[in-house]
Design a protein around this nucleic acid. Structure first.
Lengths: 368, 368
DNA sequence: CGCCCCTTTGAGAGCGCTCTCAGGTTGTGT
DNA sequence: ACACAACCTGAGAGCGCTCTCAAAGGGGCG
């Protein structure tokens, strides 16, 4: 903190007006005569006046800050560019509105109380949360504190879908998955496996649903005849929402955790169960890179023997050998949307807002 | 912000004491009789009292928050797990001290004024900055605002080394580079190229220096006879510090930018200049992955024809084919150190602090 | 027994800002 | 010329908390 920062009072004295007038000018200057406004601006510039945020917050009850909560107790966050990208979008939108970004990492479960206290403590005006798992306590904490929240990805806790005014930004995961699988079918692949994400997240559930729907529609066989994939759970009961894995072809599914290592393991599992498979759709690029490694280790050529399609289209998709065919989603743009949505909500405008769901598109590279 | 949060006054009334006493209890309770202390604690619990941070800040002049400034106008940040990892370390240390982390991205040069205003505005008690380029205006802004700063990586602006009380956490980049190159020499490689990072960052300069020193000591040839590497600048005049590329073997050097694409280009350049090279030391894992791709494209086998060593030992190093031999640095730990150092500085303790330089170590995998 | 000192508590003055409200000035309509 | 409205401006009351300072209470000691 610099030495003695000038106060409103000082500026007022210098400009020869009252504190109130300076305050008005500093906050937009509505209803102040031109000449005075200029005089005040000059005084502000000369003194290098910067408003004291604490004093302001004390009376307005607005902090001008928003929390971004990253809840990934598993250290996935740190190898996944997904969060970094989304953060960039969020940061840009917030900066444009002169709103600060307070970053909250939930490193392990012991952090929850601290985070809860923080959210309840009036340090921020609202919060952005993403990639929540089904039973995450964060939404409850925020609700209790009366904190406006915008979610990244459709929330999946029981009853979430029915909640009025629930705000989130998501991509149409189901459609994206269908895109991927139809592409594979179109290239003549018939035994298509799926490496799912953690099935307590809606994005993973929806992608699985898309995979099954496309398979059913395309009439191709995943693991035709076998009754569902061993490693796959079916999304659980509490979720009758759009993304329910629901009907469709059972397929050939192994559950990963969105990490490369998880992709590696899941791929090995699929290979063990269906040595003749000729394609895999992984629910994330990172898992696809793992799959690539396992395939290579097992002597399968990509895409000659097995085609691979990922999801996300982040940098790592272009680093692999061969580069990944993948489903593109505008991650940064989703971050921007989330921030704008929250800002609008905080602005207190009367307009109702609805969740935003963006449309993914397929990017064809060399892996499938 | 939740409905009507109880104030100190309310707690005081409930406990039948004065505001001052409640304040004392809330802030540690020194000098308050046991019975009263308990009574106050009970009242706090019953009312669910949480101190108003703004009011506190207004009088104490302490915000309890620290800024983390990420200044990478080029979008490198978003594919580089380096920052995410460091952030995790920082976040953990700050959380332990109940200090908030305000994240400031500098997305492009136009953001600087906003950031400057923020730093000068008393929103935070101190700042953490990393990977600054030589001419970054941030340190100047912070200094002007009288804001305590801890740097990640030895600052490189002219005269920085001479600045008293300059606080930073770095790894011994030079030693790390020597480790890498000596390893290659030890395996019989003789024509060793180097893909440098942007030479306006000390880490890149120091690694280049280590490469040259090891080469000179080892008596091996980089580009023996040729006068320095075409793409390499020598770190510029203003930097007589430990990391000066200084003497040593000129080597065979191409400058990258710490990104995979940069690594790709630099590798192509090296290959063009020295088709017979048998090893490359890249100043980051990400550049090494790019180099791997270029080598593959040129039909070179790794490590049979060309050995590759990276730097950082972050996740991507294990994702490549073959997995990268690389120089490990404890990135998360460095983040933790930075945060602790700043916290100590803010604590106002009298103990002088010195910069911290950690020791890297070599991790041998399959690429070289 | 009286004095002094130490511990514990409360009163009250701000921290810097916003915002309401009243007072002053200027302009318009009749 | 007067009433009235519209527009500007300033005074002042807090926002919730910390911290100084003085008062009150309790012992120990001469």
């Amino acid at each position: 903190m610099s030495g003695n920062r000038p106060t409103l009072e000082a500026v007022a004295a210098r400009a020869g007006v009252s504190r109130a007038t300076v305050s008005r000018v500093v906050n937009g200057g509505a209803g102040v005569r031109e000449t005075l406004r200029e005089r005040v601006h000059r005084a502000v510039a000369e003194l290098g006046y910067v408003p004291n945020q604490a004093a302001r917050t004390l009376v307005t009850r607005r902090t001008g800050a928003v929390a971004v909560v990253i809840a990934e107790p598993e250290s996935r966050v740190f190898s996944d560019p997904f969060f970094a990208r989304q953060l960039r979008g969020i940061s840009g939108a917030l900066a444009a509105a002169d709103t600060q970004l307070v970053l909250l990492y939930v490193a392990d479960r012991e952090d929850y109380p601290r985070i809860g206290r923080f959210l309840a403590g009036g340090h921020v005006d609202g919060a952005l949360m993403f990639s929540l798992h089904r039973d995450d306590p964060l939404p409850g904490m925020a609700a209790e504190a009366g904190l406006p929240v915008v979610y990244g990805g459709r929330p999946g806790w029981p009853g979430a879908a029915a909640e009025p005014g629930l705000l989130y930004v998501d991509t149409d995961n189901r459609a994206g998955a269908e895109l991927a699988v139809r592409h594979l079918l179109g290239r003549g692949r018939r035994r298509i496996g799926h490496i799912a994400g953690p099935l307590d997240q809606t994005s993973a559930v929806d992608r699985l649903a898309g995979y099954r729907a496309a398979l059913a529609a395309g009439g191709a066989a995943g693991e035709a005849g076998e009754a569902g994939g061993g490693g796959a759970s079916y999304g659980g009961p509490g979720d009758p929402a759009p993304g329910h894995p629901g009907p469709g072809h059972p397929g050939l599914v192994a559950e990963g955790d969105f990490t490369p290592a998880g992709g590696e393991r899941a791929m090995a599992e699929l290979l063990a169960r269906a040595p003749a498979l000729d394609a895999v759709f992984a629910a994330s690029d990172l898992m696809a890179t793992g799959a690539l490694r396992t395939l290579r280790a097992h002597g399968r050529r990509v895409p000659d023997d097995v085609a691979v399609v990922g999801y996300d289209d982040l940098e790592p998709a272009t680093w692999t050998e061969p580069p990944l065919t993948t489903v593109h989603q505008d991650v940064e743009g989703m971050g921007t949307s989330m921030a704008r949505m929250l800002l609008r909500r905080l602005g207190g405008g009367p307009e109702r807002q609805d969740p935003v769901v963006t449309t993914p598109r397929l990017v064809v590279r060399e892996s499938g």
